[in-house]
Design a protein around this nucleic acid. Structure first.
Ligand code: FES
Ligand code: FES
Lengths: 155, 155
DNA sequence: ACGAAATTGGACTAAAATAGTCCTAATTGA
DNA sequence: TCAATTAGGACTATTTTAGTCCAATTTCGT
């Protein structure tokens, strides 16, 4: 199904959470509370993210994590890279392109082509785009049929 | 790494092989021989492909498989669909969109956006594009440095 | 100096998805 | 009837992914 792993999804949630904290430090527990994810999982992922440089860390009491760059400058491609390695839909489309079948295999460079296309899509999407904009859909509803808008009476 | 499963890769090899046989019937053993894949694996995959309608089958002695459509009319998206289900990089981007985290989760519709982008790329690539064109790279080499072409003296 | 609160690094187990094999029926042609 | 072949599915093994936990290190506050 060509899906990203659940951990990558979680990792993205964490990044989105950090993006909402404007450079303030968040401890792992803070993040766990904010995202409703299990603490050990959050700890593990934050370690990965810190090692990658995408987030910075401060040790010791009152330490924590924070983004090292603005959310607008972090691409989905980078996030995927960090959380599940470089995008490569087949073994043949890796950088260190080492496929034993290659001389025999008739499936050519098209997977690579698909791969590049996917990569470029990913590079156009930023962490800032990943935050759910809560009003977007509401506005659309209002224009097309105001009376059917479920938010119009509050609660 | 966002990769397709090995079986999908094999399945594609099989389709490419069938595409090279011009409507003639191929038994599973033929395909296994032609692709250098293990027979049981080929049998399994051909069954899947046949069930999907992408290839047709004839039972009994002298039976076999063949493509039901021209390679130009089969998209990579379809192949992926058949071999590993609909493209959906997260659980939230499935058709039957049922994610329990959704009300809490701040990661918005961007995954769906990425998903649509990938789908559309896949729909532009056809089975016929997936066949390795054996001369393509040779020609390039010839233009840039004729003497370095390893094929120029036969073998 | 001490202790509490954090990160760091990595080992470890459990669970799930994937890959691969094999067996038994049903179908067809000679 | 026999041999070749697909159909369907059960089954096992392997690999990947998820998740937990522990011991060490760093830093702040008292
Ligand atoms: S499977 Fe590796 S080159 Fe085709
Ligand atoms: S994880 Fe499902 S909506 Fe965000």
């Amino acid at each position: 199904m060509l899906r990203i792993s659940r951990l990558t999804d979680y990792g993205t949630m964490i990044l989105v959470h950090l993006a909402g904290q404007d450079a303030g430090l968040c401890s792992a527990s803070d993040v766990a509370a904010g995202t409703h994810l299990a603490l050990p999982t959050v700890q593990k992922l934050l370690k990965t993210l810190a090692k990658s440089g995408l987030v910075g860390s401060v040790r010791g009491a009152d330490g924590g994590y924070r983004l090292t760059r603005a959310p607008e400058e972090i691409t989905a491609a980078e996030i995927l890279n960090v959380l599940e390695g470089p995008v490569a839909i087949t073994e043949c489309s890796t950088e260190t392109h080492q496929c034993e079948l290659e001389p025999l295999c008739q499936v050519g460079s098209a997977w690579q082509k698909i791969n590049r296309a996917i990569r470029s899509v990913m590079e156009d999407i930023r962490l800032s785009d990943l935050r759910r904009p809560p009003t977007e859909f509401v506005l659309k509803d209002l224009r097309q049929s105001p009376v059917a808008n479920p938010y119009s009476h509050g609660s």
